[in-house]
Design a binder for these strands. Structure first.
Lengths: 150, 150
DNA sequence: GGTGCCGTTTACGTGAACGTCAAGTGATGA
DNA sequence: TCATCACTTGACGTTCACGTAAACGGCACC
């Protein structure tokens, strides 16, 4: 088992392109639990795998609370009773459906973008402006939010 | 053109399942610009279409700032110069790539979930706990965050 | 023995995306 | 005419996911 590797916090921040603050925050939130040599954190391969899941979950739009739930389910459903296991299954399916809806949204958005690009290309080829798929005209705005400089 | 329908804010909140606050907020942010009859907002079909885009954009993980950028691009690239149009094209492609990465993430997550569910089903069928795809054990935590009651 | 460098805790700050009052303005119906 | 909606504009509050700064502990090396 060459699998018992350990990692420092720095290594993981570089690998995953997150800050140490982020990893410590995830630990505070109970998403990971690296061991300690004295004060210093030592991350196992298991921790690393969890981080992978956490970050991917985040990218697809899950909140940390949802991610914690999923991780808990992964942990639980072994030694807990049948009821717990069925509950886990249900939760997994919920997440699954959520992601499938998401996938549809993404595909629709991809469609829009493809059309927009195609329209631009055609307009450029013809040298003539073409009608777009989404109708809209410039909106003027007074933005106290924006900080003047870009 | 049966397309010149207008909508009240209530109608749209129900259709899209958002609060009026949300729509007014989007207006403050310059994402939509409904007309007014006196004080009251009157949303056109165009506004409705924009809201569709905004909400879908949000669901797939775009920030409102990004969404505003996209909407601005849709608006702009007609009457602006070639440089602007090419810039728009580039931006659209960036968004496109972002979404494609997202799609990969989603598909991987879907894979994980399918495997997890399959593992549960098999374990249930056999009445014996099976090894999971993601390794982890319960994490104990002391949570001042959580509000005691679930 | 100072100066980096990596690591730590504690604690307050921040931006995004709204929520939640408070207080006001028409339009409508009894 | 009065009440009751639906709608409006501020303005402050809130949650999430961290950022940022302060202050400290080892260790390495020169």
């Amino acid at each position: 088992m060459h699998h018992n590797r350990t990692f420092t916090i720095r290594q993981l921040t570089k690998e995953f392109e997150v800050t140490a603050r982020t990893l410590r925050f995830y630990e505070d939130e109970g998403l990971i639990a690296p061991e300690r040599r004295g004060q210093t954190r030592i991350y196992s391969g298991r921790d690393r795998a969890r981080i992978t899941l956490i970050l991917r979950g985040r990218r697809v739009g899950f909140s940390l609370a949802e991610i914690r739930e999923i991780l808990d389910l992964y942990d639980q459903h072994h030694d807990r009773g049948v009821a717990q296991t069925l509950h886990a299954r249900k939760k997994f399916e919920e997440q699954l459906h959520k992601l499938e809806r998401q996938k549809v949204d993404i595909e629709e958005s991809l469609g829009e973008l493809h059309r927009a690009i195609a329209a631009i290309d055609q307009a450029m080829a013809e040298g003539v402006p073409t009608a777009p798929s989404v109708e809209a005209h410039r909106i003027e705005q007074h933005h106290p939010h924006r900080h003047a400089a870009e």
